[in-house]
Each structure stands twice: as C-alpha cells, then as structure tokens.
C-alpha cells in the first residue's frame, strides 16, 4: 500500500469574517499528483499557500506523514524544507546569481556541504538547459528560464512534496510547454509528489492522478484525474471545463 504523505481534515480558513476555505478534506499519497482546479477566486492558491504555512488556518488539521502539524512558525520553517513551493511570479532573489539562488537554502538552512550541493545544483540546471547561466542574474533571464531556476531552487532542497502555484500563468505560450515537460518528467521519472494549481486543462488532464475541483472555497469534486476530465460529476465542473475550451 502506498504511503500517505499528506492529509488535510476539516480545514477552515477565514480572512477576517469572510470564510475562504470550507471544511477541506483530502489526502495525498507518495508519488501522487493532485491538481487543484476551479475558477479564479475559488481558493486554490489559498489552499496551496496554507499547506506551506504562508497562510494560517482557523481550525482543522494537516498531517504530514501521519503526524499532525503544529501550525507554529518554528514547525513550518522545518516543514518547508520538505514541502517545496514554486510561485507564479518566480520570485528569484534579484541580488543573487542563478547558482546562488539555488544554493542559498540548502547551504544556509539545511547546512549541507556547499560543494556537494553545487554539484547537484549544476546537474539539475543542466537537466533544464540552464548550465550556461550559473552566474547570470535573474534580470538577464527570460520568464521561462526564471521559472526553471525557481523549480531547480525548490528541488535542490530535496523536498518530499512540491507545491506548484500557477507556475506557467506568467509565461508566453511557447515557454509554457517547456515548463510543463519538466513537471511531467518530475512526476513520471522521479515520482515526485505534487500539488498543482493550474489553468492549463490539457496539462492537468495529462498529469493529474486526482483532481480537487473547488468553488467559493468548497470542494465540489474529489475525483481521479481521467474521470474528472471525461465524466465530471457535477454540472458546475462540466460548465467549468466547457468554459476552458477543454
């Protein structure tokens, strides 16, 4: 039986009086790819950010390897080394070169040997075709290149889960494909456990093992990937897929 790596139970989140996540329940097995779909403002990114401790939650529980997370800053700081996150806007550090961006957390946070990490980082950067940009600054890179560095930066921490928040949303269409291929390779070759927020339905249909369809902070569907795209259970999900020209 595949090990359950993450479980969310009865999670509720509020912005002041407004509830933005309602009774969220799901679990994620090792190597599984969970895709969060739904219209803008449905709570997908908020849920993803909550799973990385960037948003707090009012009640409910998150379990990592069956251990309940104590939502304190200290605990989140440790957990974030296991739960990597990549953002829509890349957010590379502009004051650091590509290689410095990648080395910062493994060396300073995980206290790993710099030479060993550098060797691994160069290998990862080679895999995404950026070995010639080690000493370039983020401002010298295209959007697609920045996003590839951001993915490598998160992978350099050797996370157990990767959270990808609309990572192709800021890219030119021709760059989108390259990033999607990297993510698909991570899933198929490395069996990386991932939670992905995306508006790219074709990509989602190829990669998703499971789909959570959200609206107004509620999970309307929790369906295996293929089934969601071929036979959505709710009319709302059908309408959503139609509106996305899928």
């Amino acid at each position: 039986m595949t090990e359950e790596i993450l479980k969310v139970e009865h999670l509720n989140k509020f912005y002041d009086e407004r509830q933005v996540l309602h009774n969220i329940n799901f679990s994620l097995k090792k190597g599984e790819v969970l895709t969060l779909l739904g219209p803008s403002g449905s709570g997908k990114s908020t849920l993803l950010r909550t799973l990385n401790g960037l948003e707090d939650y009012k009640n409910g529980s998150i379990y990592f390897h069956e251990k309940k997370i104590d939502p304190s800053p200290k605990e989140w700081q440790i957990l974030r080394q296991k739960i990597g996150m990549v953002f829509q806007s890349y957010d590379l550090f502009p004051n650091l070169t590509v290689i410095e961006n990648v080395l910062l957390a493994p060396v300073k946070v995980q206290k790993r040997d710099e030479n060993e990490v550098k060797e691994e980082a160069i290998k990862l950067l080679k895999q995404v075709g950026l070995e010639q940009y080690l000493n370039a600054y983020p401002r010298e890179l295209s959007g697609g290149q920045k996003q590839r560095v951001a993915i490598v930066r998160a992978l350099a921490m050797k996370p157990e889960i990767m959270l990808l928040d609309e990572i192709t949303a800021s890219l030119d269409p021709e760059m989108v494909r390259g990033i999607e291929e990297i993510v698909e390779l991570l899933s198929k070759r490395d069996h990386m456990t991932m939670i992905i927020v995306t508006h790219q339905m074709n990509f989602a249909s190829r990669i998703a093992d499971e789909v959570l369809f959200l609206e107004d902070g509620h999970i309307l569907e929790d369906t295996p990937g293929k089934e969601f795209f071929n036979h959505p259970q709710t009319q709302r999900a059908k309408d959503f897929l139609d509106s996305m020209d899928y």
Binding site: Q77, D91, N95, V109, M157
Partner: peptide, 27 residues
C-alpha cells in the same frame, strides 16, 4: 521589497533572520 520575495524566502525554509540577512537587506 515585494511581499512575494519574503514569501519565496520563507517557502524555502529560511528563518526570519536569514531572510533579512540574505534576501531583504541586500535589496
């Protein structure tokens, strides 16, 4: 300094002091 720079640093597991020292202060 954009809020997203802070979040990106925190998401990498940097402590608040490391975040200030290596990310925010140089910027």
């Amino acid at each position: 300094v954009p809020k997203s720079q802070r979040e990106s640093g925190l998401a990498l597991g940097l402590s608040k002091i490391q975040l200030f020292r290596y990310v925010l202060l140089p910027q």
